Amino acid sequence: MVAHRYGQALFDLAEEQDLRQPLLEELTELKKVFADQPELGVFLTSKQISFAAKSKMLQFLIDKASQTVANLLRMTFDYGRLCTLDAIINEYIRLNDEFEKTVRASVITAIKLEDAQKERLASSFAGVVGAKKVYLDEKIDPDIIGGVILKSNSYIYDGSIRTKIAHIKRLLLK
């Protein structure tokens, strides 16, 4: 996969140059720019837009970027791979998380968790998955009735009341 190769090369370069953390911050910001302005990606990859206009817009991004990110933008643009930029950044983030033993997980609850509850949940989950740090993306879903559902790349824990009721229902129907 192209994104994996580019992301790995970018991560290796960042480690060699001791730029892993600053590059992570810059790539995260770049990802946010493209997410907040989806028409920017469409503009830069559209066949209806002139090469000169796209180059001018790309230069605006490059002027604000570090040398490494500027090179990444130029290379993906020149090779027609700008549409994979988001996947490349995601791969870099994944590799960095793996390096730092960080896990990103979503937590689904029926009501909003207090900060102390989120910290305890993150700490407990870190112990279960062997991570140093856990980032929780909180989602509210009243349909789960109560309890918690935790999902990461390699782990799913469903302790919701809805699932427990469904399990009891299946047992009663046997």
Rank of each mutant, 00 (worst) to 15 (best):
Q59S: 11
I62H: 04
Y92C: 07
T84E: 12
K64P: 07
S55K: 14
S124R: 14
N90E: 14
E114D: 13
V107H: 09
A53S: 15
T76S: 11
M57Y: 09
A87D: 14
D141G: 06
D78P: 01
A53K: 12
N96M: 10
L85F: 02
D141W: 01
A116D: 12
Y92P: 12
V107R: 04
A70M: 14
Y79M: 08
K101S: 12
D86F: 14
K133S: 09
T163E: 15
K101D: 06
G147H: 10
L113V: 05
K64G: 12
F43R: 01
R162H: 11
M57I: 09
I111F: 07
S55Y: 01
A122D: 12
R162I: 07
M57G: 02
R120T: 01
R74G: 03
T45N: 10
Q67F: 01
K112G: 06
Y157F: 09
G147Y: 13
A116E: 14
S160E: 04
A122Y: 14
D137T: 05
A52E: 12
R94A: 11
Y135N: 15
E119W: 03
G80N: 01
L95K: 08
I140D: 10
A70I: 13
L113W: 05
V129I: 02
C83P: 00
E39S: 11
K112S: 14
I165L: 15
A105I: 02
A53E: 13
T68Q: 11
D115A: 12
S154E: 02
Y157H: 00
E98A: 06
K132E: 08
L113E: 05
I165D: 07
V103H: 04
A87C: 01
T45K: 04
I62N: 05
F77E: 08
V148S: 02
I144T: 09
C83R: 12
I149S: 07
I108C: 06
A53C: 03
A105F: 09
A126T: 00
R94M: 07
E91P: 02
A116P: 06
I140S: 03
S160F: 00
G127N: 15
L73G: 04
E119P: 06
S50Q: 08
T109C: 09
N153S: 01
N71M: 12
T45Y: 01
P142H: 08
L40M: 09
G41M: 15
D141P: 07
R104L: 11
R120P: 05
A110P: 06
Q67C: 00
L82P: 12
D86W: 11
V129M: 07
E39Q: 15
S55D: 10
L113G: 08
L95R: 13
L72D: 00
A65W: 03
F43P: 00
K118T: 15
G159H: 04
R94E: 10
G127C: 12
S66K: 09
K47C: 00
V148Q: 00
I156H: 08
I49E: 01
V128F: 05
I149C: 08
V107C: 14
E119Q: 09
G147M: 03
G147C: 03
F60S: 13
P38C: 14
D143P: 06
R120V: 05
Q117S: 05
N153F: 08
C83S: 14
L82Q: 13
Q117Y: 01
T45Q: 04
A131R: 10
K132F: 03
K132V: 08
I62D: 02
L72C: 04
A65H: 08
I144C: 05
A116V: 00
D86R: 14
F43E: 00
V148K: 05
V107P: 10
E114I: 03
G147A: 03
